[in-house]
């Protein structure tokens, strides 16, 4: 880089408001969902509560749409319809699906700051099976995993089976 260019850049940069250095998230939660999966949709209020409770504690939460045919417009409509708060990403080539090892929507993968998946599975035990919904949740796996991370410990449960709509395998 030429010195003059560098100088101009530094001058310009010095006039910008000071920003905090980018903080690395303590953990990243990927919540795999679909626009038309009723079990995933029924979690919308709990997803928003989790976002409220954890995103300011250094945990990054993103919604991942693994359906390769879903459009950005459909995702935006879905987000508006269910008032979903986390950021969204469409995982058309299943990079995130494979990295997380998920099979289902809704299913979550929690990665630590090194990118290692430390919890994968269901959000909680609201559904015992298809059509078998508990009146009250008695196990909150995702919240427990996040609390453990925030306390500097390992999640007690690292894997659970998810119940919902299966993610298609790409040809």
């Amino acid at each position: 880089m030429r010195p003059a260019f560098l100088l101009a850049f530094l001058l310009l940069a010095s006039r910008l408001p000071a920003t905090e250095p980018e903080k690395k998230p303590v953990a990243v939660v990927s919540i795999f969902i679909a626009t038309d999966c009723p079990i995933a949709n029924s979690y919308a209020p709990e997803i928003n509560r989790i976002w409220n409770d954890y995103s300011e504690k250094g945990i990054e939460i993103q919604l991942v749409y693994p359906d390769p045919e879903v459009t950005q417009v459909e995702v935006s409509q879905h987000v508006a319809e269910y008032s979903l708060k986390p950021a969204t990403v469409i995982d058309r080539d299943h990079t995130l699906v494979k990295k997380a090892g998920v099979t289902t929507t809704p299913e979550v993968a929690v990665s630590d700051s090194a990118g290692k998946v430390i919890y994968r599975g269901r959000i909680d035990n609201l559904y015992a099976d298809y059509g078998e919904r508990r009146r009250e949740v008695t196990e909150r796996y995702l919240r427990d995993a996040l609390d453990a991370i925030l306390n500097g410990t390992d999640p007690a449960v690292t894997k659970t089976g998810a119940i919902g709509c299966l993610i298609e395998i790409l040809p």
Binding site: C37, D67, D129, Y130, C165, L166, E168, I169
Partner: peptide
């Protein structure tokens, strides 16, 4: 085709 695996699961499960 877009829902094939879900269909397979819920019909095998006899939920649908």
């Amino acid at each position: 085709s877009r829902k094939a695996r879900t269909i397979d699961r819920v019909v095998s499960d006899r939920y649908m």
